[in-house]
Amino acid sequence: MEQTLADRTAASASQPARLTEIRIHGRGGQGNIVAAYVLAQAAFEQGRFAQAFPSFGPERRGAPVSSYVRLANRAIQRHCQVLSPDFLIIQSQGLLHVAGLTAGLKPDGGILINSARELPELEAEAADSLEGRNVIVFGADALATEILGKPLPNTALLAAFLALTGLLPLDALEKALARRFKDETLERNLALVRAAASEVPAGLWRVAAHA
C-alpha cells in the first residue's frame, strides 16, 4: 500500500515538532529555486516534510534573489515567509555587499558562502557584520566547473550543507537529483555531491541543526 499524506502525517504526529528553515541567496539564473526544490525533495525522499518556495514576484536574471526551504518532522501547515532562518546558503560572494543579507538569521545559525577567497577578506567587504557568526567558506564554483564543466554552485553547496548539518543523508540528495536529472548530467551531479561533501568538516553544524 502506498503511503499517503495522511499516513505520513499520522506517523509523525507523536514526534516533538522540529522545524529547520533555510534561506538561499543567489543571483537570478544561478538555480536558486532549483536548489530550494531539490533540498525539499531530498527531505521528502527521506520521509520528512518539506516546503520550498522562491522569493515572490518578478524574476530577473542577475538580480539578487532568494529562495526558502522548510524541513520538518511534522506536517507544515504555515504558508508565510521565512523570517528567522537557521541557515543561510550564499551562492555568490558578491551578495555580501548587500545590506541586510543576514537579516533574521538565528544567533547560532550558520552561513555557507560560495567563494574561492579567504574568510577575513570577505568579512572586510561584507555589508553585514559576520563577526561571531558560524561561517564556512567553500569554493563551489571551482569544484562545479571541474566536475560539471560549468560554474553552477547549487548542487555542491547543498551537498556541503548536508555534510555540515547532518540534516539529511547524502543519498537523500542523490535521490532528489535523480528525480530531476538523468544520464550524464545526473552522473556528474552525483560525482559533485561526493566531492563537495568531503570539502567541509562533517557534522560541524549538527548541534545548530538539532540533527
Partner: peptide
C-alpha cells in the same frame, strides 16, 4: 493564492 501556493513545492497526494 498565487505564489504562496502556486510556487511552493510540498508533499501533495
Amino acid at each position: 493564492d498565487g505564489y504562496i501556493l502556486t510556487h511552493t513545492l510540498e508533499p501533495i497526494d
